[in-house]
Design a protein around this nucleic acid. Sequence first.
DNA 1: ACCTGAACACCGTTCAAGT
DNA 2: ACCTGAACACCGTTCAAGT
Lengths: 254, 254
Amino acid sequence: MGTRDPFKASEVVSRRGGAAKQPLSRDIIVAAALDLLTQEGLDGLSLRKVAAALDTGAASLYAYVEDLQELHALLLDRALAGVDTSRNPQQGWRARLETLLESYYRALSRSPGLAQLAMSTIAAGPNALRIIEALLGLLGEAGVEQATAAWAVDLITLYVTAIAAEQSQRRRQPDPLGTITQVVGAVSAEEYPRIHALRHHLLSGSPVDRFTWSLEVLVKGIVQTPRPDAPAGKAVASRKRMTPARNRSSSKKL
Amino acid sequence: MGTRDPFKASEVVSRRGGAAKQPLSRDIIVAAALDLLTQEGLDGLSLRKVAAALDTGAASLYAYVEDLQELHALLLDRALAGVDTSRNPQQGWRARLETLLESYYRALSRSPGLAQLAMSTIAAGPNALRIIEALLGLLGEAGVEQATAAWAVDLITLYVTAIAAEQSQRRRQPDPLGTITQVVGAVSAEEYPRIHALRHHLLSGSPVDRFTWSLEVLVKGIVQTPRPDAPAGKAVASRKRMTPARNRSSSKKL
DNA sequence: ACCTGAACACCGTTCAAGT
DNA sequence: ACCTGAACACCGTTCAAGT
């Protein structure tokens, strides 16, 4: 194990002969970790490797970071820095919502394993808060009651994270035997008639088409589904019978 | 500790003085792993510990299981065995859908870490297929066009898994500093006015209430949102009356 | 065939000791 | 104060050797 590996992979390497090590800092550590995550995926990310990339030992990182878990959280928030929440007043709430969530989705998909990491890390950094704030604003514009919007934000972000995680990892495995494709394609028509009949539909559609469709599902559902305990104030009077938002025809049974 | 006898935690322990080791088998390995997962969570699950519980070395497991990943997949499917897909013809599709998904959700929530595991494991075992098959049937009854139902199943299962994972891990941390509760509760009113204003709403609601609400959102959205490339006109336009999913006589292209 | 101890190449985290 | 080598207690996986 050569300790002096010229394997730095960071900006400041050495000026002349000597090894001019940059001073450690939270920021540099997080940057190196994100680099590593991007290049090697979640499994390739370790404190030891981050330390090695910074030409030090793993123990040194503990002066700046509590934990591997904390590093994960910092990593996630830094990755979310790229999400654009600026308002474009030209567009309606719906278009802006879609733009924002696509940006969110793309940020999580940028590095393999980032979305996976997001599924096991609570996103509560400044960038996550900025995104939530923006979402609340958009849902408000959409006329969603406040208490409902609070839950809706959770639902939406959870879903975007989940779908990014699912797809990031579908990409990890080119086509081993266990893949959905193989299983669904070979399913027995007697045992699972519906899966068999729909096997092509189940696998069809580009990620972006599915994403767009799912978003539409969520938005439509959210706009029409008040929280059970929502104030009966202006929009909804849902106490026992759930009546669709505003005044739709109340015929919808089943 | 000290829940069971010595250390075995499985049926066949020792008959007489000697240590009568049960023969290994896939089934026994998976059972031991599920035990371990239930008792110690995902982080406490390892091939070495499973082997130790079965009084052997980790290497021995490789005769029955390809991989840790494969063990995960087997584990997940075994956990899904408890999901009830039997039809109760007394109830409408909606009630049955809710029952099924609650059962699914509960199965994933039974062991800590199981839902997390599910997020990084493709569920394609017989029990997963059985659940998908049932979901397709229910969506068909709901009048959802077939191609749309195929995508909807993905959306629904992904969501149930994700919310189970989120909550299973919210339970892991009682209340360290980074928790959502702490962050959201202390957010600055100037920087994040909307989060601040809604901070109580954001945290309110029991898991089951949120789950039920989310499900309603999804179902309403799905019923009303055909796939972009779905056959137009024919069946479910937007919210017309549901057809009793009976007359399959008309030409069912695709 | 089935099983296994030992080894290999890794982990996160702690700590006494260095500067 | 900051940094570190070494150690501790773990991992998944492989393999030659045992029965």
